[in-house]
Computed example of a mutant assay.
Amino acid sequence: MKNASLILNVVLTIAVAVLYYLHFKGPQAETDSAVKSPVEAKGRAIVYVNVDSLLTKYDYFKDTQKVLESKRFQLENDLAAKGRNLQNKVAFFQQRAATMTQEQGRATEASLQKEQQDILAFRERAAQGLASEEQDKNKQLYDQIYDYLKKENATNKYEFVLGYTKGGGILFADPSGDRTSKILAGLNKEYQAKQTKK
Rank of each mutant, 00 (worst) to 15 (best):
K157P: 01
G186E: 09
L149N: 12
Y158Q: 07
Q104D: 02
D118N: 13
E134S: 08
R179T: 03
Q94Y: 02
D59F: 01
L79I: 11
K182H: 04
L187Q: 05
Y21F: 14
A185T: 04
Q74F: 01
R84S: 10
T180P: 09
L162G: 02
Q128G: 12
A127M: 05
Y48L: 04
K114Y: 01
Y191H: 11
G177F: 06
A91Q: 14
V49Y: 08
F122M: 09
N77C: 00
A107P: 00
I7C: 03
S70K: 15
K166S: 08
N156Y: 11
G43N: 13
N153R: 05
I14L: 14
L54N: 04
Y60R: 07
L149M: 14
G169Y: 06
N153Y: 12
E133H: 04
D174P: 02
S37D: 03
Q144C: 03
D59Q: 07
Q104I: 07
N153A: 08
A17Q: 10
D32F: 03
D136E: 12
S132Q: 12
I119F: 09
V90I: 15
L55V: 06
P175L: 12
V67E: 11
Y146Q: 11
Q195P: 04
Q94C: 06
Q117Y: 01
A4D: 03
K25V: 09
G186T: 06
A17Y: 07
E133F: 07
T31D: 01
N138C: 01
K194R: 06
K182M: 03
A34Y: 07
Q144S: 14
F24T: 13
T64E: 07
